[in-house]
Design a protein around this nucleic acid. Structure first.
Length: 402
DNA sequence: CCTCCACAGGAAGCGCAGGAGT
DNA sequence: ACTCCTGCGCTTCCTGTGGAGG
């Protein structure tokens, strides 16, 4: 339901209601996630009978629908439970904002006791409050989104699972969500077995699936007939190629729509999607690098500037455009030089390799093992995105300059 | 075949900050 | 307020590895 002012604003726009195409919008229907929804529902079903369900751990890359699916299901669960007067309550905690055991518990307890303020109370008091709620016969579902961001996860999960042993009736059920596939391995084995009683992987969407999702969203958000079919296909293809990330696809279409408005066009065509692509890519990169520690930004900066510097020479040798491939060693040397220029501290080569691994995990760079034709064993490093874009973003936004 | 190169990545340990316990 | 503890970022040291070169 659009606000009347928003309607006014969108009179001459390709949009009818932009909310439907915002990245925060949780759709009613979640296509291609039927089997996940079915499985999770089955796993949660014991609590409808007042018993504890298995804890559940979901993982998959960003924009694969983990959060949306979970919110959808718990929303339905709460609605159903309240209509049947079953004592079920859910709390959603985003651990990116609540990144410690204490903060998570506060957030959750505040959800269960909305009228009370718990700031300043001790951790054990908060914990007891939670037990009190569950002990009154309630079955609580705690969703811990981005659980890998919690500093003391082991403590948190241990405390929450342990709580069930102390409860006569009622229960505390956990759903952990993470997009870090390595997260599970660094958990304490006991935490791992209790949190991951049930596990589920959310695979990336392919181009056809993205296309269907986008089509549905476009129908809700845009004026009828103002988005060309091929524009949707193109946006889906880009997103599928990049990551299989629904959020990227949605952002592409949103920005394309804005572009059409800006140019006072009545339609969104391939050209606008094309234009939006570069903008969305920039947003994604900026989003990623802005949260990076300064040293990692420096490493990335070194890779970008080396790539740019070497490119003309490589072109001269081969006579054609080549991929900007760098040796691990020369990147470290370059990093040492620029680190001395901007900060005095230079990390060791060992730790630099750790940085490289992390940058690769974020998808900012791609590395391949050196095959034949190269002496010794090293890694080839390549940027995951356009070198100029990364270079200029780091230069303008983070105070590096040549 | 052996040796060297240019790294990869594991293990141990160190200094520090911040939180818990007293 | 005081210690004690713990996690984190990092260094140092070390062993492994695959290809080049003699």
């Amino acid at each position: 339901m659009a606000n009347i002012f928003e309607k006014e604003l969108e009179k001459n726009s390709v949009f009818t209601d932009r909310n439907f195409i915002s990245p925060h919008y949780v759709p009613d229907k979640l296509p291609f996630r039927d089997s996940q929804i079915r499985d999770i529902t089955t796993i949660l079903s014991p609590i409808l009978h007042g018993r504890k369900a298995d804890n559940l751990f979901l993982y998959g890359k960003t924009g694969t629908g983990k959060t949306s699916v979970t919110k959808h299901i718990t929303g339905q669960l709460e609605a159903f439970a309240s209509s049947k007067n079953l004592g079920i309550e859910c709390a959603y905690v985003n651990c990116r904002n609540h990144n410690s055991k204490y903060r998570c518990l506060i957030k959750a307890v505040h959800r269960f006791f909305p009228d009370e303020n718990f700031l300043g109370y001790s951790a054990s008091f908060i914990y007891d409050k939670l037990l009190e709620k569950a002990g009154a016969g309630k079955n609580l579902v705690l969703i811990l989104d981005e659980i890998d961001k919690v500093k003391d996860v082991d403590d948190l999960v241990y405390a929450l699972t342990r709580a069930n042993d102390e409860l006569g009736k009622g229960s505390i059920n956990l759903i952990g969500i993470s997009n870090n596939l390595l997260f599970k391995d660094r958990l304490d084995p006991r935490t791992k077995s209790s949190l991951c009683e049930k596990e589920m992987v959310f695979p990336p969407y392919n181009a056809e699936e993205l296309s269907a999702i986008l089509g549905e969203r476009a129908r809700l958000a845009f004026r009828k007939g103002s988005v060309e079919e091929s524009a949707i296909s193109l946006a889906s293809a880009y997103a599928a190629q990049e990551s299989g990330d629904a959020r990227t696809a949605v952002m592409l279409l949103l920005r394309a729509g804005e572009l059409s408005d800006k140019k006072s066009l009545s339609k969104v065509t391939d050209r606008e999607v094309e234009g939006a692509k570069s903008k969305v890519e920039e947003e994604i990169i900026l989003n990623m690098i802005s949260t990076l520690p300064e040293q990692q930004q420096l490493v990335l900066y070194s890779i970008a500037s080396l790539t740019l510097r070497k490119r003309p020479a490589m072109r001269r040798i081969t006579g054609e455009e080549v991929e900007g491939v760098l040796y691990s060693g020369e990147v470290y040397d370059e990093y040492c030089v620029s680190a001395k220029k901007y900060k005095e501290s230079v990390v060791s080569a060992r730790w630099y390799r750790q940085y490289i691994n992390e940058l690769e995990m974020y998808g900012l760079i791609v590395t391949t093992a050196s095959g034949k034709g190269v002496k010794g064993q090293t890694r080839f490093i390549k940027l995951g995105f356009d070198a100029e874009k990364i270079f200029s973003l780091l230069e303008s936004g983070f105070g590096f300059s040549s």
